[in-house]
């Protein structure tokens, strides 16, 4: 097998020296995983290099880090695939989490988010006592398993813009976990879960970052969308976000149903009310952007097609 010397630049950190970069030359071949590269550096060159790694097969979620700026699992990343034309690779600790040592951040905040969503099944008493057998259809198992696939690697939270901007957002992984139990008919706390997750679900921007970085293809953003689809079942407190989500949702649905299109200005009025609209109009006037504010497009001509397609919600 053809070996090649590569250069690995690691952003190191410790309390005493702060942040500094260190480079290592390592021999690798096309089968060498980044966890193996790190192991070689640690056992042969720099024993002080600190990182997390366990299963080296992408099921334990330990070796999360940024590789060339991309949130990745080191074990799932082959050195030759990511080195640049000069044979260089950059490794950094994940974003968002507090740095503690080299490639090891403090991810407690990730775990805390998971614990918040009651991440465990509450089965029927009869089942727990062993009096009754649980059944589960294969389709349902498939749906549950999809979102149960989360390996607690923390990459999605590290990359999520809403997590950084909004402390009330539970984050992608916790939502995948939370929805996994909503989707599980063996669980007896579905209503409680919907109430617990709904406000946070509307704090996601649907930017698909979590979908992109997830090494297990869990697609947390899809779990969030599926949770939102239970808005009508929500019985919890009417938070600002919930109230606006309802208004905004109903306004859009009504517009699409009636006209086949979204008329931003009508939507705006319906969601925010007249007072807020006036304030914003003044800003738009100032920036010379008011002239298109009342542009109105044609409705869909064959609106019956739209109505028939929309039919009942499912």
């Amino acid at each position: 097998m053809e070996e090649k010397e590569i250069t690995v630049n690691v952003k190191k950190y410790n309390e005493k020296d702060g942040v500094f970069w260190k480079s290592y030359r390592v021999k690798a071949d096309r089968y060498t995983q980044m966890t193996e590269v790190l192991r070689r550096i640690k056992t042969e060159q720099d024993p002080s290099l600190s990182y997390r790694a366990s299963c080296h097969m992408a099921v334990c979620g330990s070796c999360s880090m940024k590789i060339n700026g991309i949130p990745s699992l080191a074990c799932k990343t082959m050195a030759f695939k990511v080195m640049d034309e000069k044979g260089e690779i950059n490794l950094e600790s994940m974003d968002y989490y507090t740095e503690v040592r080299d490639l090891i951040p403090d991810v407690d905040t990730f775990y805390d988010r998971m614990y918040k969503v009651m991440p465990r099944l509450y089965a029927d008493e009869e089942v727990i006592e062993g009096k009754e057998e649980q059944r589960m259809l294969p389709e349902e198992q498939k749906e549950v398993w999809k979102f149960q696939g989360c390996i607690y690697c923390g990459l999605c939270v590290s990359a999520c813009p809403s997590v950084k901007a909004d402390e009330k957002f539970l984050g992608p992984a916790a939502h995948a976990k939370g929805y996994r139990y909503i989707a599980d008919d063996r669980d007896t706390k579905k209503e409680e879960r919907i109430d617990m997750l709904m406000d946070s679900a509307w704090r996601c921007t649907s930017c698909y970052m979590c979908y992109e970085v997830c090494p297990q293809d869990v697609q947390p953003v899809i779990a969030i969308k599926k949770t939102r689809s239970h808005l009508d079942d929500y019985r919890g407190p009417e938070t600002d976000v919930i109230t606006m989500a309802r208004k905004h949702d109903n306004a859009i649905l009504e517009l699409i149903n009636d006209t086949g299109k979204i008329k931003e200005s009508s939507l705006y009025l319906k969601t925010f009310g007249f007072g807020e609209a006036i304030k914003d109009s003044i800003n738009m006037l100032k920036s010379g952007k008011i002239k298109y504010a009342f542009t109105k497009d044609n409705n869909v001509k064959n609106i019956n097609e739209i109505k028939k397609i929309m039919g009942d919600k499912k």
Partner: peptide, 9 residues
């Protein structure tokens, strides 16, 4: 942040 403007401004 646009998707949040109508929900969580």
């Amino acid at each position: 942040g646009f998707p949040l403007v109508g929900i969580n401004p």
